[in-house]
């Protein structure tokens, strides 16, 4: 395996993969706990609009996509928080409209069709030095923001009202989380693409959630799953000549299903419920006698 990473482009791909794996799986921890999976899908798909608009204007699509995805994420948040439109309906409207806008701009911009596949499904082998810088800086910013607000975000995911009563600024944190979501989607664009970015923002933490009943272990499992998936997927992509995004997401999904089958948490739950059943039967028998 080390042989393939002796190539310069593969080294860059490896660095990009590891950064993406860490950033996505750290944010995925909160996405899963806050039940943000559908918002994540919405935000990542809506970034297509930003990329299309940026290409049309001739600006950097990653930066344009980030700004656009952030605005869409805030829009979804504002509409659903005011309670006038159901959150899922808002996501459905925003992301389909944003995607349609992106596709319209792709149609208006000549000569971009060759790049589209890379934006939609990732092209990690085309990562350049500038991409690495953007990835590194924005990824580090997301990790830093999440680390600083870790316990407040955890409390908010547990219960918003209770967190607010304890002085947690729930409103600003909600929008901060949405912003991190938009930035991270664009961090992942080169590695897995816009369409598959949401997978890396859910699967690693869902694996940890399935395995452990302790948030610290869940977080570590998420980080390990994220990094192993990107590195393993990258290797498989090179070996079988598959698109990198698809290989990485499939690798992560395999890890999730293995965890689902072997989950020790479920075994403990089964054992506890068996124990409670036996106890309750014993109580009933005692009452009868």
């Amino acid at each position: 395996m080390t042989g393939i990473f002796s190539y310069g482009f593969m080294q860059k791909a490896l660095v990009a993969g590891v950064i993406t794996g860490v950033v996505c799986s750290f944010l995925a921890f909160f996405v899963v706990l806050k039940r943000f999976s559908f918002i994540t899908v919405g935000v990542s798909h809506s970034a297509v609009g930003g990329v299309g608009f940026s290409l049309f204007l001739g600006v950097n699509p990653v930066i344009g996509g980030t700004v656009f995805a952030t605005l869409v994420a805030w829009g979804i948040g504002a509409v659903s928080k005011r309670g006038k439109i159901n959150e899922e309906t808002a996501i459905g409207i925003f992301f389909s409209a944003a995607m349609a806008l992106g596709i319209a701009f792709f149609g208006l911009t000549k000569g971009v069709y060759a790049d589209l596949f890379g934006y939609f499904f990732g092209n990690i082998l085309a990562v350049g030095p500038l991409d690495l810088w953007i990835l590194g800086i924005s990824g580090a910013a997301v990790v830093l923001v999440l680390a600083i607000n870790f316990h407040s975000l955890l409390f908010m995911c547990f219960d918003e009202d209770l967190a607010q009563a304890h002085g947690v600024p729930v409103g600003p944190l909600y929008y901060l989380l949405l912003t991190c979501l938009a930035v991270t989607t664009m961090v992942a664009v080169r590695v897995v693409g816009l369409i598959l970015a949401s997978a890396l923002l859910v699967i690693p933490a869902a694996t940890g959630y399935e395995v452990f009943a302790d948030y610290r272990r869940m977080l570590w499992t998420s980080l390990v799953t994220g990094v192993v998936s990107t590195v393993g997927g990258l290797y498989i992509s090179y070996l079988l000549d598959l698109p990198s995004g698809a290989a990485i997401v499939l690798f992560a999904a395999c890890i999730f299903f293995v965890a689902l089958i072997l989950s020790p948490k479920k075994r403990v739950a089964r054992r506890l419920s068996r124990k409670e059943r036996i106890q309750s039967n014993a109580d009933r028998t005692r009452l009868k006698t």
């Binding site: 706990l33 039940r35 955890l154 547990f158 219960d159 209770l162 959630y209 009943a213 272990r217």
Partner: peptide, 12 residues
């Protein structure tokens, strides 16, 4: 608060 309806598997 009143009894909370938090996620059954919330890992805390």
């Amino acid at each position: 608060p009143q009894r909370l309806n938090f996620e059954r598997d919330f890992p805390v």
